[in-house]
Design a protein around this nucleic acid. Structure first.
Lengths: 129, 129
DNA sequence: AAGTTTACTTTCCTAAAGGTAAGTGATAAT
DNA sequence: ATTATCACTTACCTTTAGGAAAGTAAACTT
């Protein structure tokens, strides 16, 4: 059904839509980072704020909501002294881990290449520092 | 060096930056689709416009330029009757293929899940149709 | 001379992403 | 009573992504 497996150029509609959905859900500055951090274990809101460097509470709230609505994480309210909320991955999120791995592998090589490429001209436009 | 391999929670700086670079480069609605289409072979500007459904010439130009600057594609001017320009993948782009594969696999499963989840409530918010 | 094809470019616009800063409300410690 | 902590929310603003439509320039066809 997925035309890439037949080697032709027409991505069948379902595959095209799947790709678009995945990009739409996982694109953006923060989602992959949040999922990655949750791979190490459940985290509270505040933990995530600290460990996902640079994210604001507003944006964190929004990202967590979207991930929850897409069934990749679950939100649990704990009855602790000052109330805390834990976020944890659902089993579904494991498939997103493959995306993370591929991005990391790619990113590491890409940084090497770009750094080499700019070694000659001195500018640093395409890699974060 | 990459802390994920040591199982702890501190992504070392280089890994974090690599991830950010990769997301920055490959995020967005079109890049992955363009790379995917070029996997099937070189394409001219006009071919890409047709095969990457919905993209405008302005945006296509911009995306191609960014991919070229990041060494993932090369641009070649052919001396044909009406001039044509071919775009082709560099060997580096092969690593991005892993990202595509992971996204597609994830996206297919994700669409299944979301469709099942909304089968009960009738809305269709999180999947493209 | 007029029209077609290719590969763009330019202008204008809207919507979404994301940042900053301050505020809220519940509970608990001092 | 005051202050602190946690998990947000709200208001405001800037930047970026992306879309629509038209235009341009070179070369070829008719």
């Amino acid at each position: 059904m997925i035309s890439i497996q037949f080697g032709n150029e027409m991505l069948c509609k379902e595959a095209r839509l799947a790709l678009r959905d995945a990009i739409e859900l996982l694109s953006g500055k923060w989602k992959i980072c949040i999922l990655q951090q949750l791979e190490f274990g459940d985290k509270r809101f505040k933990d995530l704020q600290e460990v996902v460097v640079g994210i604001s509470p507003k944006v964190l709230t929004k990202e967590l909501l979207e991930l929850e609505q897409n069934l990749l994480i679950t939100r649990t309210v704990n009855n602790t002294k000052p109330i805390t909320v834990s976020y944890s991955l659902t089993p579904f999120a494991l498939e997103a881990q493959a995306v993370y791995d591929a991005l990391l592998t790619f990113g590491i090589q890409q940084r090497k290449r770009i750094k080499e490429a700019i070694a000659g001209n001195g500018s640093l436009q395409n890699v974060a520092v």
